[in-house]
Write a protein that binds this DNA or RNA. Structure first.
Length: 232
DNA sequence: AATACTCCCAACCGCCAGTAC
DNA sequence: GGTACTGGCGGTTGGGAGTAT
């Protein structure tokens, strides 16, 4: 099957969208919808753009339900967890964050999160390999790095710590948050491996939040697909 | 003030899967 | 079953904005 171009790249406009183009795109979709076909959309809307470009602009930026504010620490935590389980499945990760697009999440990961040590923390248990470049601290290493592997119950112990950290008003700066969370995790590694039932900061384990619900759901789905026994 | 450098994000590219014919 | 076409995805890049020198 040969690759067919979606439009004549030499004749369509490229680069940043002007406010006028945004307005045309938005108005046309509000009035007529996408028409179910992005390739013919630019012609109908009177835009000198590639259909794919129109789709991307709408999906990633102009859609009314898109959030344009900064990522919260709580969202960061979810991204960390899901990335460690799923890898670079940005669309799936984004689907768990209301108002965020795959492009948003990918950019945020590449520019902010992957440099931080927390990116090396989670691994999904059972049949996953134990080495990964993706979950490693890429700011200091370019080779495969061994990272901790946590079981589902262990991860459930981590979640309250993360959530508590993200909600704690005493955290005054992001660097303070980062170092505290990293510290919590380094201690957690020893603590709950020996099953003492609490985080290093004494936060009880029975406060499982929605992050864990997401994990459970994914584990169930993965287990169903891969024939891996469901732990929950 | 001018230049160099870095960071970040919007947008593009190319591939793949699904579907229609 | 084979081909053409489209939508969607992940990887990558270009360039504007901010910061350092």
């Amino acid at each position: 099957m040969g690759k067919t171009p979606c439009c004549d790249k030499t004749k369509v406009r490229k680069g940043l969208w002007s406010p006028e183009e945004d307005e045309i795109l938005k108005n046309h979709i509000e009035k007529y919808g996408t028409g179910g076909n992005w390739i013919t959309f630019p012609q109908k809307a009177g835009l000198n753009r590639c259909g794919k470009s129109c789709r991307l602009r709408w999906v990633n930026y102009l859609r009314p339900d898109i959030k344009h504010e900064a990522f919260t620490l709580e969202e960061d935590n979810i991204i960390y967890i899901l990335y460690s389980i799923l890898g670079s499945k940005w669309s799936i990760i984004a689907s768990h964050l209301q108002g965020r697009t795959d492009n948003d999440v990918k950019n945020h990961w590449n520019t902010n999160l992957k440099k931080k040590p927390m990116a090396a923390v989670y691994r999904y248990p059972t049949n996953n390999i134990e080495t990964t470049t993706a979950a490693a601290d890429l700011s200091t290493s370019t080779t495969n790095t061994l990272v901790p592997t946590f079981s589902a119950p262990e991860t459930s112990a981590i979640m309250p710590c993360l959530t508590e950290s993200s909600k704690n008003p005493s955290f005054s700066s992001s660097s303070q948050q980062d170092s505290t969370i990293s510290e919590t995790f380094s201690q957690l590694g020893e603590n709950f491996m020996f099953g003492n039932g609490s985080c290093s900061e004494g936060i009880p384990m029975d406060n499982i939040d929605y992050g864990y619900e997401i994990l459970s759901e994914i584990w169930s789905q993965e287990a169903a697909i891969e024939g891996v026994p469901n732990l929950y």
